[in-house]
Design a protein around this nucleic acid. Structure first.
Lengths: 353, 353
DNA sequence: GTTAGCACTCTCGGTCATCGAGTGCTAATC
DNA sequence: GATTAGCACTCGATGACCGAGAGTGCTAAC
């Protein structure tokens, strides 16, 4: 899997601008673009014959292809890659769009743990692609709160709130009936023991607890469940991927006959690849683009992903991004993804201070 | 919208079995079925000519159609309806399948609030259709637990656990810094005040609280947020629809050219219709089938829904079901939906006792 | 190096003939 | 009177064929 194709020779400016024109036109129309269309729609200052020569050069450089002899050119994955690395202007998002996005986030300030969903929705709408987002997940989660609530005589609900905002609820069956009062006492002890701690720390603290007496046993027993839950949470590669706007991708003409798309969706449902991808993105720390066949699974070879991590590198990180056909507006996508990821980082920090 | 077409004359047994054969065959093959195919594949004991006569009768009764003159018959929505009401054997699910489903539910006993998701997944897999499920939502939710956790100096997280299992987290900004200790005291008061209560009751209780002093103001202020959150939760028509297996629907040959399907998906994303539908199902209390054009929105006219409520009628109810092409295995679908809904009711009761 | 001109290629869309599945009708049969 | 065999007929699906058009690559002129 070659993720970064370093094009040996960098292109002269005119070739670049023609490559850019081909890509822009193709992204727009989804049909192969010919030399005539280019000179007509872009002020290139040369004739179609010249353009043809350059197109042929770009093709032999591997940046464009022919679906067949008498059709126009379409970009290859390498062409998109070159565009993304050397040509595309991914500078800042226009302030208008920035404001719109900020505004949307302002609307829902109270529902913190839903921010990542909003990010997906926003990205989907802004790019007319699918938007993806995961909640910010710490490498080693810290407990903020432990609580125990009776449900029935021998059944209690154990609630664990993590500093990073996630909540886990676990059912605990009790060997004998326990009053809510006693549960509360146990919860207070556990809470004092574990608040601010990671799984390992909490485990150590629990080990020092006196396991004798009714309350001691209860604390021990439930404490182990808490630690198991933290460990389970830590081990999760990826907590949840929220996606929105899959419809946009379905609408792309290249996916009209849905076979390819079905495979993509199937690959998305199977979280393994996505998890691995997101992990890698989280590790790197800036916007990353995965174009078509650069994606390992064959099913993904017709789509591209633009992903960026958010959060604080050392602590909790999540990923936001978009998924669309390889024929996608990379400049715009990169711009919005970068902006949304920065915005999310800001929000997370604000909460987590 | 006619939901229940009472066919004037009930059919004679032979016509019924031929209608059943047509439907079974069509569900299986997705191609119009002709008289010859029927006599060949089903022991009908009559010639193809006789079958043709009966098919013509069924057609004039509105239960079958012709895509065109020289094609076989396909069932109409009314045909499916008649099949569902009068012919289909929706008796109990084979014990093997029951066991399989039960087993799947047994696996995840600890993650109670995720049951409804599992229901959707199970239904999707069992029927090769999309599975839908909502969490059980009470008409008037009861609070089980209220908790307050500091996040930063002037920011606290208010956690509300409902008796029915749902959890809400709300950020509360404080006018001045408050220690966790004080927050805990406030939380204890609020918890005592509101546990077991509905929004209205809690409101009444809060009104009797002494609003003076630092702690009083805090309790008042947060209490109002709690009540607002309960009210908001109560007002929600439908908390969330979890769906799984949409891929199965995409795979159906009638949706290969995806235009129709795209509309269906779009209609699903817009929750209004689904919410209304689910509300109605929750009100009725048994498996309900909505076939093709019986669905009000035009986008839904190519799909059918088989839905059933679960939970306790007076208290919390949710809905489970499947969505598939009108050409779907109704008998099987009804069987599994009924079974899963019963199972879910059992589980909810067990928890909620 | 650029451009005009042109022959060539290949897809797309339309037309046409053929094929065959399946019907509806009629007349014969049980 | 119900059932069936037989048959003409209908109509979509399939594939061959053809012309138009888009776009190329090449060559020769500028």
């Amino acid at each position: 899997m070659t993720r970064r194709v370093r094009t040996a020779a960098s292109l002269d400016p005119r070739s670049q601008s023609i490559l850019r024109a081909v890509i822009e036109e193709y992204v727009d129309t989804a049909t192969p673009v010919g030399s005539a269309a280019l000179v007509e729609r872009y002020r290139l200052g040369v004739s179609s014959a010249t353009v043809r020569n350059i197109l042929a050069d770009l093709e032999s450089a591997g940046l464009l292809t022919h679906p067949h002899t008498s059709a126009g050119r379409i970009p290859t994955d390498a062409g998109y890659r070159y565009f993304v690395e050397a040509i595309a202007d991914t500078s800042l998002l226009p302030p208008v769009e920035q404001l719109m996005i900020r505004h949307q986030f302002g609307q829902v300030q109270h529902a913190s743990e839903q921010w990542f969903r909003l990010a997906a929705t926003t990205l989907a709408a802004a790019n007319r692609t699918a938007g993806l987002a995961t909640p910010a997940k710490p490498r080693a989660a810290h407990v903020r709160r432990v609580d125990l609530v009776t449900i029935s005589e021998r059944l209690a609900s154990l609630i664990i709130v993590f500093r990073e905002g996630a909540i886990r609820q676990v059912l605990v069956t009790l060997s004998e009936p326990v009053e809510q009062e006693e549960l509360t006492r146990a919860a207070v002890i556990l809470d004092g023991l574990m608040a601010g701690r990671t799984a390992t720390d909490a485990d150590r603290a629990l080990a020092r607890i006196d396991g004798d007496g009714a309350i001691g046993t209860l604390v021990r027993r439930v404490g182990e469940r808490v630690i198991a839950a933290i460990r389970e949470y830590d081990a999760m590669v990826i907590e949840e991927v929220f996606s929105d706007g899959l419809l946009h991708v379905m609408e792309a003409p290249e996916f009209e006959r849905s076979e390819k798309l079905r495979r993509v969706f199937a690959a998305l449902e199977n979280r393994a690849y996505l998890g691995q991808l997101l992990d890698r993105v989280a590790g790197v720390g800036s916007v990353q683009v995965f174009i078509g066949a650069e994606n390992a699974p064959a099913e993904m070879r017709d789509v591209s992903l633009v992903l960026a991590p958010y959060g604080e590198p050392g602590r909790a990180v999540g990923v936001v991004g978009v998924l669309g056909p390889t024929r996608m507006g990379y400049a715009q996508a990169i711009g919005t993804v970068r902006f949304v990821s920065a915005l999310m980082s800001e929000l997370v920090q604000h909460i987590d201070a």
